[in-house]
């Protein structure tokens, strides 16, 4: 086991150099025109943790305005993929283009500003702050007052603050949480917390929203409400990627589904195509 682990990363590293040097700058210039509508492009992405391959040569793209479902058994690499798109992990090889530009070496907060927002598998709200404040923090990249603004409270700072609050309340209404505006986020029922995370993510005015298991821990009624909310977000023109174990939700609202299994892309297609795919059935039922 250990020997395997030692060998693999080395071969991987040589690949990294090739992929980055040759492919990225030349390729995406020419590809840009033909792929105008693609908001996200992932190219032969690989990532290893120690000796374990978390992602292996993943390539796919997400068209603007769609909901792209990402499914697969536990440990398939879905969350790792999210962490790479949001800039938390850097790829060992391959690259990611967001709106045609490589996200390499761009820090997480700058990617949020560029338009990538996310929610977490396990709720990561700011528990001691109210829902309103959570959403206001979500607006951080769209507001600009800093230390001196806070100290001097110049008119523009107060104006910005007032506008931000109005906008935050709008978003809270939009997600149907207005009863909880001034409640501590940690006090919200779990179903509401999931919605609150979406509200906070929307506050950064993203063009790509990544939802990591938004329906986990929700009951049937809450899941349905979540589905409706996701549809509403889609109508705003926001592209979404969705990791989900609830198949009826994932298949019901996705325009396109990508199946991952043990770090590799198993299949890609419309929900109908995926449901009839033999490989996918094997992965889920056959060899578990």
């Amino acid at each position: 086991m250990i020997d395997m682990g030692m060998e693999q990363p080395e071969t991987d590293k040589t690949e990294t150099v090739n992929a980055n040097d040759t492919a990225s700058p030349l390729l995406h210039e020419s590809e840009l025109h033909s792929r105008k509508e693609r908001i996200l492009e992932v190219h032969s992405l690989s990532k290893m943790f120690g000796g374990v391959t978390a992602l292996d040569d993943i390539t796919f793209s997400v068209e603007k305005g769609i909901i792209c479902g990402l499914i697969g058994p536990n440990g398939a690499g879905k969350t790792t993929l999210f962490n790479m798109i949001t800039g938390i992990y850097a790829p060992d090889s391959g690259y990611i283009l967001f709106k045609g530009k490589s996200i390499r070496k761009i820090p997480v907060h700058a990617l949020v500003k560029a338009g990538i927002a996310r929610t977490f598998q396990h709720v990561e709200l700011f528990g001691s702050m109210t829902l309103l404040e959570n959403v206001l923090v979500g607006m951080h990249v769209r507001t600009r007052s800093g230390f001196w603004g806070a100290v001097t409270r110049l008119p523009w700072v107060l104006r910005e603050e007032r506008k931000a609050r109005e906008r935050a309340e709008e978003l809270i209404n939009f997600t149907g949480l207005s009863d909880y505006t001034h409640r501590s986020a940690g006090d919200l029922p779990i179903g509401r917390q999931k919605m609150a995370e979406i509200a906070r993510a929307l506050a950064s005015e993203p063009s790509l929203l990544l939802l990591d298991e938004p329906a986990a821990g929700l009951n049937a009624v809450e899941t349905e409400a979540l589905g409706l909310l996701i549809e509403k977000v889609k109508k705003k023109g926001i592209t979404m990627m969705l990791v989900e174990h609830d198949m009826s939700l994932a298949m019901g609202i996705s325009d396109k589904v990508i199946v991952l299994d043990r770090g590799r892309k198993l299949a890609e297609g419309t929900p109908r195509e995926i449901q009839n795919n033999q490989d996918v059935m094997d992965a889920y039922l056959g060899e578990a």
Binding site: T86, I88, V108, H109, V112, K113, A117, R118, F120, E124, L125, F126, G127, S128, M129, E133, N134, L136, V137, G138, H140, V141, T143, S145, G146, F147, G149, A150, V151, R153, V157, E160, E161, A164, R200, A201, A203, S204
Partner: peptide, 26 residues
Amino acid sequence: RILSSRMGRALRSIHDGEKASMAVGV
């Protein structure tokens, strides 16, 4: 003044969860 501002909220969000704070753009 600092605490009730945008900066203060971001600060408190670090205390509650640095990972999430980063992920929302702080």
